[in-house]
Design a protein around this nucleic acid. Structure first.
Lengths: 118, 118
DNA sequence: GCAATAACTCAATAACTATTGAGGTGTTGA
DNA sequence: TCAACACCTCAATAGTTATTGAGTTATTGC
């Protein structure tokens, strides 16, 4: 991942409405969610929602597909993996014990029974 | 981690100078770096550097300590772990195969021989 | 105490970003 | 083909953020 992409991704994630959209889509999984359902879940008017969805899509964090009259948005998981790897690159210079908690936090996030630990 | 803290963290990371400072400090490890050395490494004037270091410290991503006439900055690793956990919370609803690449990316970031893989 | 060094603070300006409301596009089913 | 629905686009405004340069504080060694 290039620095430019990482900056765009972090900028996209630094806004309340967009962060909520992203977390919602990450939790929704590969089946995704329709724009209207996202708007209802986070409480945003259509123009505001559309603006932020476009922003996230442009940043490469989500993607959309049309299904009839609905537009379905899904999280792009590899983008998040790359972003995390870019940020934490060479984080411990060969001493993994320094950043092990970060790896554990990541693994915990994947285990629904312990997601709140970190 | 609260949403408010996550927003502050992402906002802090969405600026070129600050992202460079953070990656530099993450790579520097617990010994940290003096403000002057950080400025020299990324090419920033003292007032600009000071502004961004204060911003990062306020966001809870780095901390500082005085050592004689130097001020040493270090990355706060637990803050990054929490941020990643917050973002990826419930990412796969019990289907870890969906987000396994993110965990792998994180583990790779800790292995200096394969940091560029993701 | 004084000069040099390291770093911070402040105020003004420039640049960027979010929200709103009105209006437009594409899709469906009677 | 028409009305209803789902969603997007645009332009104006308000709010936020970054940069610069001048000035200030803290520490060290002579």
């Amino acid at each position: 991942m290039k620095e430019e992409s990482a900056l765009a991704a972090f900028a996209a994630l630094s806004q309340e409405t967009r962060l909520r959209i992203v977390r919602l889509l990450i939790q929704a999984g590969p089946k995704g969610m329709a724009a209207g359902d996202i708007g209802a879940a986070i409480g945003a008017t259509t123009s505001r929602l559309s603006f932020h969805l476009a922003h996230l899509e442009h940043a490469g964090l989500i993607q959309s597909r049309r299904e009839g009259r609905f537009i379905i948005y899904t999280a792009l998981y590899p983008a998040f993996s790359s972003l995390i790897a870019f940020l934490m690159q060479d984080c411990c210079q060969g001493h993994p014990e320094i950043c092990a908690p970060a790896v554990t936090a990541m693994a915990c996030a994947c285990d629904p029974t312990s997601a709140d630990k970190a």
